[in-house]
Each structure stands twice: as structure tokens, then as C-alpha cells.
């Protein structure tokens, strides 16, 4: 399964903003780096969320979207 959101550990400064805004509680800080603990629950809130990406000040957490033609 494609992991999302995608985390660049080198860029993460451990500020924890993404953890604080995540509706689904899938993110935690481990050794001051954001880590996904319940990948399957991401977007379980059924929103087009991307808030973790919105708040990240360093671009360490990204929410890439696939674009497809129906």
C-alpha cells in the first residue's frame, strides 16, 4: 500500500504541528521525528484533509495525490 502522508525524516525538525492538527491521530513524534503509527486510519475522517502538509513549516510531510482519468 502506498504510504501517505510521505515523510522526509531529514527535513523534519520535530515541531509537532502536524501531530497537533491530525484529525485521525495517526502521527506521533519518535526521537523528535514525525512517524506514522496507524497508516490505515489516515483519512478515516473521510475528509480531503492534507492539514499535516498545510502546517509543516519545513516541507517534511507531504500528501501526494495521484491524478487519474475516469
Amino acid at each position: 500500500m502506498f504510504e501517505m502522508p510521505v515523510i522526509d525524516r531529514a527535513k523534519c525538525d520535530g515541531c509537532g504541528l502536524c501531530v497537533s492538527v491530525c484529525h485521525c491521530n495517526i502521527l506521533v513524534l519518535v526521537d523528535n521525528v514525525v512517524t506514522i503509527i496507524r497508516e490505515e486510519r489516515c483519512v478515516s475522517c473521510n475528509r480531503w484533509c492534507t492539514q499535516c502538509e498545510d502546517v509543516c513549516p519545513t516541507g517534511a510531510i507531504r500528501w501526494p495525490l495521484e491524478i487519474v482519468i475516469e
Binding site: 502506498f2 492534507t50 502538509e53 507531504r62 500528501w63 501526494p64 495525490l65 495521484e66 491524478i67 487519474v68 482519468i69
Partner: peptide, 12 residues
Amino acid sequence: GDGTGARPRLTQ
């Protein structure tokens, strides 16, 4: 893409 994951994904 066609949904097979062949195309790169983009963030906003």
C-alpha cells in the same frame, strides 16, 4: 495517469 501508479504523484 491510468490509475496504475505509473505517473508521479503531485502535492498541492
